[in-house]
Computed example of a mutant assay.
Amino acid sequence: MVIFDNDGVLVDSEPISNTILAAYLTELGHPTSYEDSLRDYMGSALHRVHDTILERTGKRLPGDFDDVFHGRVFAAFERELQPIEGAVEVLEKLAADGVAYCLASSGSHERIRVGHRKTGLDTWFDEGRIFSSQDVGRGKPAPDLFLHAAERMGVSPDKCVVVEDSPLGIQAAVAAGMDVCGFTAMTPAERLRGASQLFGDFRELPDLLI
């Protein structure tokens, strides 16, 4: 079975969301560059942002932080979001070949659905194929989300291949005992240590999954 991450793997959301996150944190008095946001938060659930800011500054983010952030991100998604080039073709091939697949994302179910409706990926992912960090106690880099997805899909972890683009996601997949194909479109290969294989273009992925 193939388990896809969502942000940065299926939809080109990482530049959008990290630009907004960096600007919002800076606005709140926590100076953060786009590069800082990618390094510290890419691939993680939003609670990591709260935990990191509290640890570094001793201050909590506002109680409405998540709602305001999601509102800004969803509005930007409606304007800008696109599927990753080649992702639909890979999904078509998996479906045609009868290969099981699903999605396991640090993002909320609402975030996933908003992005999929905008990009047309909702055609390929019904509710039974979508798993969010909301479904488990700990998000990536803990293995819980990937193990939960495998269990719900009825597949042993050692029969799963994860497609990930973040160091946190790679750590989670390895901890779950799964092979990983690391997508290097936005993350340098040296930051994806632990991936079984690396690829920079989705057209390369089917051959890696054989």
Score class of each variant (00 low, 15 high):
Ile3Tyr: 00
Ile3Trp: 00
Asp5His: 02
Asn6Val: 05
Leu10His: 01
Leu10Trp: 04
Asp12Asn: 13
Glu14Phe: 03
Asn18His: 14
Asn18Thr: 07
Asn18Met: 13
Ile20Pro: 02
Ala22Ile: 00
Ala23Cys: 07
Tyr24Thr: 00
Tyr24Gly: 05
Tyr24Met: 14
Thr26Trp: 03
Thr26Phe: 07
Leu28Thr: 03
Gly29Met: 12
His30Tyr: 15
Ser33Lys: 09
Asp36Asn: 13
Ser37Lys: 11
Ser37Gly: 09
Leu38Lys: 03
Asp40Val: 10
Asp40Thr: 07
Met42Pro: 00
Ser44Ala: 12
His47Asn: 10
Val49His: 07
Asp51Ile: 01
Asp51Ala: 14
Thr52Ser: 12
Thr52Arg: 15
Ile53Arg: 02
Glu55Ala: 15
Gly58Cys: 09
Leu61Thr: 04
Gly63Ser: 14
Asp66His: 12
Asp67Gln: 14
Asp67Ile: 09
Asp67Ala: 15
His70Ile: 11
His70Cys: 06
Gly71Thr: 15
Arg72Lys: 15
Arg72Tyr: 07
Ala75Ile: 10
Ala75Gln: 13
Ala76Asp: 05
Phe77Ser: 05
Pro83Asp: 06
Pro83Thr: 04
Glu85Met: 08
Gly86Phe: 12
Val88Trp: 00
Asp97Tyr: 13
Ala100Cys: 08
Cys102Asp: 09
Ala104His: 01
Ser106Ile: 01
Ser106Glu: 03
Gly107Ser: 15
Ser108Ile: 00
Ser108Met: 03
His109Gly: 04
Arg111Phe: 11
Ile112Ala: 14
Arg113Thr: 06
Gly115Glu: 10
Arg117Ser: 11
Thr119Glu: 05
Phe125Arg: 08
Phe125Cys: 06
Glu127Thr: 11
Arg129Val: 08
Arg129His: 14
Ile130Tyr: 04
Phe131Lys: 02
Ser132Asp: 09
Ser133Asp: 09
Arg138Gly: 08
Arg138Phe: 15
Lys140Thr: 09
Ala142Ser: 12
Phe146Asn: 01
Leu147Glu: 13
Leu147Ile: 05
Ala150Ser: 08
Glu151Thr: 02
Glu151Asp: 13
Arg152Tyr: 04
Pro157Asp: 08
Cys160Thr: 00
Val161Gln: 05
Ser166Thr: 04
Gly169Phe: 01
Ile170Trp: 01
Gln171Glu: 14
Gln171Pro: 10
Ala173Cys: 10
Asp179Gln: 12
Val180Asn: 00
Thr184Ser: 09
Thr184Ile: 07
Thr187Lys: 03
Pro188Gly: 12
Glu190Lys: 08
Gly194Val: 04
Gln197Cys: 10
Leu198Pro: 06
Gly200Trp: 11
Asp201Glu: 15
Asp201Gly: 09
Glu204Ile: 00
Asp207Lys: 15
